[in-house]
């Protein structure tokens, strides 16, 4: 497998990066990078880490070409080489971190997650009300990994705060069974894109047969909540699983925000013929300029969730055929 870290990879322009994956050789992971400058979304670090751990677990070698880009220290600082147990060949004097980032973390169980959530808050140096949505997103996404992915390596998470745009960007990645597999038993999605769309629809969960129904531990609301947070802050949200990617595009500033239950009726882009990702990749940007009114958001979510579920159930109703 070959991955090339391009000059710039953010959610908005991540498509060519994903399309460039060469998945032909399962026995070696070769990572190369742009020679001058590499600037990437945290989800990219999560993807490389998760893939490296997965491939090594399956006996593959990792060949990470020595980075030459001026920005190479960022990758070291975020813990990429450390997690993959690779020599970065960089000599860096450790110092107290003044940056606002959460280095790459592997979270394997509930206790890890609780500890991680407690420890990550001071790392971001943000006001408590701005941290709330971030804690919420990480908890829901990582617990999805525990409950649905069957990933032996748990969830790989990292985040970065960007002062200039006042935005948090974060990624949560696993190398488990992927969304289509999770929904296969009860929903039989015809392809990966349809599976992602189902997973984003309120009331769909892989843990119950009942359409629009709920199980003891799941209501099929987590991803819808997170997509709604991104939409409310007019930011990007992306899911890549199997051969498909769904990307919620930025809501234009002059357009009123309306939450929609069906993700395929939202302002989005998608691709259903990408190199196969075994597992699930989720990335989100969250601009903190306007504090999200969580209470109002919850009121809207309640309304849309309820309507969406009713619509979902209605779609399955069969009408009598009169001849």
């Amino acid at each position: 497998m070959k991955i090339h870290l391009m000059n710039s990879v953010w959610i908005g322009n991540i498509d060519p990066f994903i399309r460039s994956f060469d998945i032909s050789n399962e026995h070696i992971l070769e990572i190369t990078s742009h020679k001058k400058w590499v600037s990437v979304h945290p989800v990219v670090l999560c993807m490389i880490s998760a893939l490296g751990l997965f491939m090594r677990e399956h006996g593959a070698k990792i060949n990470f070409e020595k980075m030459e880009a001026t920005s190479k220290h960022y990758f070291h600082r975020m813990g990429l080489f450390n997690l993959l147990n690779l020599d970065s060949e960089m000599k860096i004097t450790p110092h107290e971190s003044a940056g606002r980032f959460i280095p790459i973390q592997q979270i394997k169980n509930s206790e890890d997650l609780e500890g991680f959530i407690k420890e990550m808050i001071p790392l971001l140096h943000l006001e408590p009300n701005k941290v709330e949505p971030i804690k919420y997103i990480i908890s829901e996404l990582v617990r999805n990994v525990f409950e649905h992915s069957s990933s032996t390596n748990g969830a790989i998470v990292c985040a970065q705060y960007y002062k200039k745009s006042n935005t948090i960007r974060l990624g949560v990645v696993d190398t488990g069974v992927g969304i289509k597999d999770t929904l296969q038993i009860f929903y039989h999605p015809r392809d990966d894109l349809r599976a992602i769309a189902l997973a984003l629809t309120p009331g769909v969960t892989g843990t119950t047969r009942k359409l629009g129904g709920v199980s003891e531990m799941n209501a099929g609301a987590g991803l819808f909540f997170i997509k709604s947070l991104a939409k409310t802050s007019r930011d990007f949200f992306m899911i890549y699983s199997g051969k498909a990617m769904y990307k919620l595009l930025k809501n234009p500033k002059n357009k009123q925000i309306k939450l929609i239950a069906d993700p395929l009726e939202d302002h989005y882009s998608s691709d259903n013929k990408l190199p196969y990702w075994k597992g699930t990749v989720v990335a989100i940007d969250l601009c903190l300029n306007e504090t999200i009114n969580f209470k109002e958001l919850l009121t809207s979510i309640r309304k849309v969730y309820s309507e969406g579920k009713k619509k979902l159930i209605k779609e399955r109703y069969r009408k009598p055929k009169f001849i």
Binding site: P128, E132, Y136, E140, A221, G222
Partner: peptide
């Protein structure tokens, strides 16, 4: 308790109602 997730509240009470 300053905040919670929907999943937590769901796991807490949904099965009681069910």
């Amino acid at each position: 308790v300053d905040s919670a997730t929907q999943s937590f509240i769901h796991a807490l009470i949904s099965d009681v109602i069910k």
